[in-house]
Structures are given as C-alpha cells and as structure tokens.
Write a protein that binds this DNA or RNA. Structure first.
Lengths: 250, 250
DNA sequence: CAAAATCCTTGACACAGATCAATCCTGATG
DNA sequence: CATCAGGATTGATCTGTGTCAAGGATTTTG
C-alpha cells in the first residue's frame, strides 16, 4: 500500500493510484475527460495535525484524499468541538457551488490530497453528467453515514460509541488493516484519544477509560498507544448496539 | 396558507402548490418535462402518527412533502430511537438507486405527499440533467443540516438543544409562522414532546422540564400544549450556543 | 543522556440528565 | 355532564459521564 510519506512525484508520474480517477469521480471517464481532469489537478500534502482550511475560509478547490486521514469539525464559541466528517482515502472534500468551507478541515495523520481548482471542475461537471451523478451517489452515502453517526451521538452509551468507532474504522479503511485471520483483525488507530472524543461526543478521559475497560475484558488488545488487535470482531460488534446483521457499511 | 386538511382534489386539479415542481425538483423544467412528471405523479395523505414506511421495507417511490411534517427515524434493537431527518413542506424523501428505506418514515402531523414511482422518475433523471443537479444541491443541503444536527447531539446541553430546535422550526417552516412583529414570533409546534426528545437525543421528561424553564424565564410563552410565542427571537438565539451571526440556515 | 513535550491513564468528586412514579391538563366520547 | 385517554408536567432519586487533578509512558529536542 502506498504510504503517506510517498513523494508527490510518484503520483505526478503515474496517477494510477489516484482515487479521484478510479473510485471517486471518474470511474466512467473517457480518455479525453481524463486528460482534462489531469490538466486541472495538483497535489498537496499535510502533516499530522495541520489544518487544511478553517471554517469560513475561502476554499477555491475540491479534493480527494489520496493517503492519510482528514477530518471535518465544527467549533462552538466556547471551544466545544464536534467532528462531523471523517475522510479516508478516496473520500471527497468540498462542495461545488459554495465559496467557503463550512467546517475546519484537519489532517489527522500525514495526508496527501488530490486537488482540483473549483471553477474548472464545476465547468467540467456541467459537460460530463456522470461526474455529477457520481457526486450525488457519494453525497447520499455521506448522508447515510451522517445519519448513522447521529444515532451514535444521540443514543449510544460511551462503551457502545467506542466499539462502534473501532468497527467503523476497521471496516472503512482496508489499508489500515494489517492482518486478518479467522475473525482476528489488527490495525493502527489513526486517531488520538482527543480526535476520538471529538468524533464520539465524549471527553478524552471517558474515551481512555472505556478503551481500558474493553482492554481489560479482552475485547481489544493494544500494543503501544495506537496499535490495536481485535481478537474477535463479532464479539466487538455485539458491543456496538447495532443490529447484528450490519448496517449500511457492511 | 394551504392546510394539511385540504383535499387531494385541490392538488390534482391545480398543481401550482406542488413543491416538487416549484422548489424541489423541477424549477427549470420545460413544459414537456412537466408533462412527463405529471404523468407519473400521485398523491398520498397520512394522519398524524401514521407510519409511511418502515425501515427495511420496499420503497418503490420517491416523494416530496406537500403539507405537514414527516420524520425519518432509526430504532435500536432495545427500542432506543433517534430521529435523523425532519421533513417539512417541499422536502424530498427517498433515495434514487436504493430499493428499500433505511429509516422509519412517519407522519408527525397530518401530511400530504406528492409521490413519483421510482423507476420512471429515475429514467427521467437520466435524460434531464438539471433534475439530478437539483437533487445534488438538495442532498448537500441535507448533509449540512445533518452535520449541524450532529453538533447539537454531540455537544449541546439540554437547554441549548431545546432553544436550537425552536429556532430551527421557526426558521424552516415559514408556513407555521402565524405572526411576526418586531422580533416577536408565534407558531404551532408540530411535534409532541416525545418527537422533540427523539430529535434531540433526550428523554421526554427532560424536554418538558427545559420547556418549563424557558417558559418561567419568559423566553417563550405557551398557550395550550402546542402554541408557542417567542417574544424576543434574538434572546432565544443566544441560548442555542450557536454563533450569533447564524449558521447555514440564515 | 537529560529535559521537555505529547499523549495517555487513572482517581476523586460533581452534576446534568435518566429513570421511576405520581398527578395534571385538555380534548374526545358516550 | 362525567368519564376516559393521550399527552404533558413535576418530583425524588440514581447513575453515567464530565470535571479537575495528578502522574505515567513514549517520543522529540538539545
């Protein structure tokens, strides 16, 4: 798997890993459309913790995450923060038709994004209906994810929230998954306790305590601060409060 | 203002109130496109409390709320419920490209919906790009609303949640607004305490208590169970925890 | 290698909101 | 007009999570 530390040069020479082509936007593009996308595209990389744009800032591009993880967050006047989007590789950032970002966009890990200047991208959308269609599909998926997230925030206990987050990350980012064998699954958690707490609507202390509980009960095994092994994925699933037959992410 | 009790006949004879034409889908449609929409459209009405579709049920139509209020909710195995969508007149229901509903759809008040059989609607979307574009816009707006809602669920206090809900309803459904004069604003709350609690991720007792508090402090005045007057809208706004210059809904 | 900086863990205690339970409206029904 | 039913209110108590605070582990810096 391509690492976040791979130089940009790699991508400029051979864009075959670029998700905007292959998964996000242009799976059905013809050669000349790819050519046009190629012309308006550029890469940016960010270090873990770096802010990509602040809420309210002008945002003259749309982008797709190539490697790493980015987050969307909202902040209240008194500093309370809530994450409202978690962007994994191939996820799309930016809203055509809006000049400024409504959220803080932050790189949670070292991140590479494939950016398109907004104006030419919007022009291209007009002439290429399936890009718009693809964008609609992606937006509907994000809306479903947001609604699942609302259930988590509104009704789940701290323990259920943690279990849910772990299963969501394990399922969504296959690239994190280092090993899978008869129900065992192992990966590096790409979020700090603080980022987890912002995702879950908890304090970082509660996150830490619940992680410890899951550890003591053998539902997860930790190695260092970030590496996590889930010995029995199904057993963890039972702690999420979700229907056993899985939701939209299955 | 057209009432929820207006007979369907009114609409079949003259669809000028039908929001699917005017606001939701077809603002830019030509005559022959309107003609085609007309052919695949039908109306359904529901009484307050009635379920429109259950989560997981087959849903062979998409629709637009004409009058009344509908809700989307998720239920956990043990009965915990979280509302994830509040649909006011002109709002759109149903996801093209998905056969079943992911949520319970319920009529919160007496409701009339303008429905389109899904297959012909999807066919029409393919030939009429601006319908897809409009749908993308609407979906992006819903996503923004969902994210604002996530902040509410994850980080706001019960008091802030109530104040937020009141301002959201007051702003979103102009039809509810009976009187407006120098900051005073009056409307019929279209939700029961229970529905409010499902929206806010609270129990109905907490909703009731916080409503009482706001009443005692003069932030709201109630008349009967549902009628609410907000003597000073800006003062209530200060209780929401939101930035004073308003969010996306302004 | 020491010092500093992050990030994480754990404990003690407080409190907002949940739970359980009783009562009160208000409009509908006979 | 009395009764009933569904919603709303209020009270007493409990509990999960937040808050405040101390300390530990790991990585970075000089």
């Amino acid at each position: 798997m391509t690492r976040a530390t791979t130089s940009l040069k790699t991508y400029n020479q051979d864009c075959s890993d670029c998700p905007i082509r292959h998964r996000a936007v242009c799976a059905r593009c013809e050669t000349d459309e790819l050519e046009r996308l190629e012309q308006i595209k550029y890469y940016r990389s960010f270090e873990a913790g770096q802010t990509v744009v602040w809420a309210g800032d002008n945002m003259d591009f749309v982008a797709s995450v190539v490697t790493g993880i980015a987050t969307l967050s909202q902040t209240m006047e008194d500093g309370r923060r809530q994450m409202v989007g978690l962007l994994l590789p191939s996820d799309f950032i930016g809203r055509p038709g809006r000049a400024t970002s409504a959220y803080d966009v932050t790189a949670a890990t070292d991140t590479v994004m494939c950016c398109f200047r907004k104006k030419p991208f919007e022009d291209m959308m007009l002439n290429t209906p399936h890009i718009g269609q693809r964008l609609l599909e992606m937006t509907l998926d994000e809306l479903d994810a947001a609604r699942e997230w609302m259930l988590l925030l509104g009704r789940k206990t701290a323990r259920e929230k943690i279990a849910s987050l772990l299963t969501i990350i394990a399922r969504r980012d296959a690239s994190l998954q280092l090993s899978v064998a008869d129900g065992e699954l192992s990966f590096d958690l790409p979020l700090t306790r603080e980022a987890m707490s912002e995702y879950l609507g908890l304090t970082l202390e509660t996150v830490s305590r619940q992680m410890s509980n899951l550890r003591k009960e053998g539902l997860i095994v930790t190695e260092g601060k970030r590496h996590i092994t889930i010995p029995d994925f199904d057993r963890l699933l039972e702690e999420t409060g979700d229907d056993s037959d899985g939701g939209f992410l299955m």
